[in-house]
Design a protein around this nucleic acid. Structure first.
Lengths: 343, 343
DNA sequence: CTGAAAGCGCTTACAG
DNA sequence: CTGAAAGCGCTTACAG
């Protein structure tokens, strides 16, 4: 066992070269597969490396190639309103895609308009590119990265020109969902949750409006309650909605939805008999709810994979589509009065 | 504006040295603050650096010092059973502590007994130390890191000797909570959730047993349902518990608790009238539940901060306490029949 | 096909 | 107090 430990002592390319009686150049070429090299020398080197568990120092490689082999991911720090499983799953997707190119994820948390961490990561030369996990209507992160010329892609849409963005089509998804609700003769569909400065909130609102327009149903602005994040605010919004006789409450995400359901329970309002409920984002949390909740379903992992792939392409100097839009599903359940078989 | 961009072009220490007519050595010293250097030269260098936005290349520094200034964090990939906000908040704490030492977080996901990602990160020399976000009874990650001599700390307890670990005192916390329940004359307290291979589950079970022992109440093993993760399994467990006439159901975490509450609603079992409920972990999700849920409360961010501090100390060659145990709160609410004022 | 050498951007004995 | 030089572990023109 001791000799094993001995071998573990960080081998360098020089050690390998010396042991094999070749130059470092040759070893380097054997590993990278670049540059002309004799087939059998290559094999010998590779065999030695395998056997002795040599692993190149990525830092050194990075310094030589002026790369870090890290991609920075900026995660929202305030997870209260959002769905943490979404970010988690999306991250897993990013990690999976990064792995395939031998990249790692450098994680950083930041708030809206707080560039500190992002700047630090970029200016310290710790990443080759960045993924922004959330987009804002006015987005200082995007502005900063563009000014730096640092490759980046956003998970979520943005109106900033020239930004590579990967997103689910929230607007169409919400439109589809709301259209179904309207077809089911719900005329007054209240809206609760979301944060105005998030692009995704805007898109959802647009989808909601689209559906109404198409159905020729007028929208009552008074039953739209955006920027209600905390539990107490949500409860108040629900109270108001109860007062304004809506048929249905659509929640901007599941966290909000849980609060809404609780409030209705407190008020002894039965779902779906007295009030229909829908959520614009479907997390695992509501999966087993009683009644089951009509919602939109997205593939967060795939989103992460696509975002990372696009970024790696960008880093490699390749071309990518500016906007990648992913699919969604409208999942009808008990909370809107129809079974899953309604679709 | 153009000249700004000009200046943005990566300055190196050589550029700075030349511009100031000093040596790179001097510049380096001025920055690091190490080595003798004239007070005014130092100032001059620092001023120039400020003005021209020079930022050292951390990679190069790392190569020279054989450090990466990254700490690896291994996050569980399967977030279904656990509380994602916990990990998120804990990560935020780690990030905060890392920042203070100019370290970054390299994030990696992995499953139980899957060392692939961990190994890759370590063997590629991408991190100076590692934080394991979850511990297993038999933990291949710990074994691997120990064999490598790589500094690491675990968030969560372990019985492996010599492992620096930061944890909430789950055993005592659960004991305290269960003791209170027993005092409130609940004699049969069912248990649902958790995964046996997780150390934390063992600790919680131990706490449960401790409380019973102290109170002189015999434990009925048949009302302990561990390893029930999916919704359907939880529902079945609840059915069994209803059949075996328990007074209270204690859930190993909030995700489980949500499912349990749903199931009880389906069965028209009223909480707390017909059944008391408690959770061993208090997330924001249940905060506004009706009825409010008796639970344990931990400070995940602080846990992350302590873990990271310990790791940085370790990396720096310092000494740290092998086991750091953090506090907790028992929060009594409606679900166990008493108000918050019961404590 | 292979190697000597310069270079990536830092740090740090060693000498002055 | 300051600097020239070697070194961290790689890559890559440039020669052969």
């Amino acid at each position: 066992m001791e000799w094993t430990k001995e071998n573990e002592k960080k081998l360098t390319i020089a050690d390998v070269a010396e042991a094999l009686g070749v130059s470092k150049t040759t070893v380097s070429r054997a590993i990278s597969g670049k540059g002309r090299i004799g087939e059998d020398t290559r094999r010998r080197v590779l065999a030695y490396i395998q056997e002795h568990h040599y692993k190149p120092n990525v830092l050194a490689k990075g310094l030589a190639k002026l790369k870090t082999y890290n991609i920075g991911v900026l995660l929202p720090e305030d997870y209260t309103v959002v769905d943490p499983p979404f970010f988690h799953t999306c991250l897993a997707g990013i990690g999976e895609a990064a792995l395939s190119m031998d990249y790692d994820i450098l994680l950083t948390m930041g708030q809206e308009n707080d560039d500190f961490q992002l700047k630090r990561m970029v200016e310290n030369h710790k990443v080759d590119g960045v993924i922004l996990m959330r987009t804002f209507v006015k987005d200082s992160h995007i502005e900063y990265l563009q000014s730096k010329g640092m490759p980046f892609v956003t998970v979520g849409s943005t109106h900033y020109p020239g930004v590579v963005q990967v997103d689910n089509d929230h607007r169409r998804a919400c439109k589809d969902l709301v259209s179904v609700l309207l077809m089911k003769d719900m005329r007054r569909i209240g809206l609760v949750g979301g944060i105005e400065s998030h692009v995704v909130t805007q898109n959802r609102l647009d989808g909601y409006l689209d559906a109404h327009k198409e159905a020729g149903v007028l929208v009552d602005k008074d039953i739209i309650h955006v920027n209600v994040a905390k539990g107490a605010m949500i409860e108040r919004a629900v109270e108001k909605l109860l007062g304004s006789r809506v048929d249905c409450i659509a929640c901007l995400d599941d966290a909000v939805c849980i609060h809404v359901l609780n409030k209705l329970r407190k008020e002894n309002v039965s779902v779906p008999r007295q009030m229909k409920i829908a959520s614009f984002y479907d997390s695992s949390i509501l999966a087993n709810n009683l009644p089951s909740i009509t919602a939109l379903s997205f593939d967060a992992r795939k989103l992460g994979i696509e975002a990372c792939k696009a970024l790696l392409e960008l880093i490699g100097g390749g071309q990518v589509k500016e906007r990648i839009l992913m699919g969604y599903e409208v999942v009808l359940k008990e909370s809107t009065g129809g079974g899953a078989n309604m679709l």
